[in-house]
């Protein structure tokens, strides 16, 4: 253990433990997922940074969106994100989730991921190298330290707005509306 961090560990052990054991949801989207196997296996070995992939979203707290997001995938992403326990962190990987990338004029691909679910950080590039993943993770550590990786809190605060954007794409969401948000969503629509 780094001796310089002992004070931090004593001050908020839960936060530090959470920070150094990121469990990535193994969710494959688009072409970016091709960079993830080298990241988690011996060549770059993400476990040095405490990251392991997990099988289900209910065990994970790091969600990497690794490529273009089609409408059908967006539906799955929203469901997956809502199943993850707090605190949870989302990272957009590659240029497609940031602004659509080369799918800017596509009839079936969304442009800005952060209008549907909150995103804590972006990795730009097409494709980003595996090293970029680790740079992003160290940045995410800094954000967690400073309390700025608060996407899950922003999702709770602005749920009505996120839900409105989701419903603009999917007229018939198949999951039921949440109780307190109904009236807020009505106001937001007006």
């Amino acid at each position: 253990m780094d001796r310089n961090q002992i004070a931090k560990w004593l001050k908020s052990p839960a936060k530090m433990a959470n920070k150094y054991s990121l469990h990535a949801v193994y969710f494959c989207t688009g072409c970016g997922i091709i960079e993830i196997p080298p990241v988690i296996t011996t060549r770059w070995d993400a476990e040095r940074f405490g990251i392991i992939p997990v099988a289900t979203p209910r065990q994970g707290n790091l969600f990497m969106i690794t490529g273009y997001v089609s409408l059908k995938t967006l539906k799955a992403i929203i469901r997956t994100y809502e199943q993850m326990p707090d605190p949870k962190y989302t990272v957009g990987f590659g240029s497609c989730p940031i602004n659509g990338g080369m799918y800017w004029d596509s009839y079936n691909t969304i442009k800005h991921l952060d209008r549907y679910i909150p995103v804590d950080g972006w990795i730009a590039g097409c494709m980003p190298r595996p090293e970029a993943v680790f740079i992003a993770i160290t940045h995410l550590w800094t954000l967690i330290d400073k309390g700025k990786a608060d996407g899950y809190l922003r999702y709770q605060e602005n749920y009505a707005a996120y839900r409105r954007n989701q419903e603009m794409l999917f007229a018939e969401l198949e999951w039921p509306p949440l109780y307190p948000c109904d009236s807020i969503a009505e106001e937001a629509r007006k």
Binding site: D105, Y107, I110, H112
Partner: peptide, 19 residues
Amino acid sequence: DFDTRKYVEETFGSIPPVE
């Protein structure tokens, strides 16, 4: 005759940023 640009403008362009 499907106008992709127009469709994209109307569908994805109309969605406002949240924050």
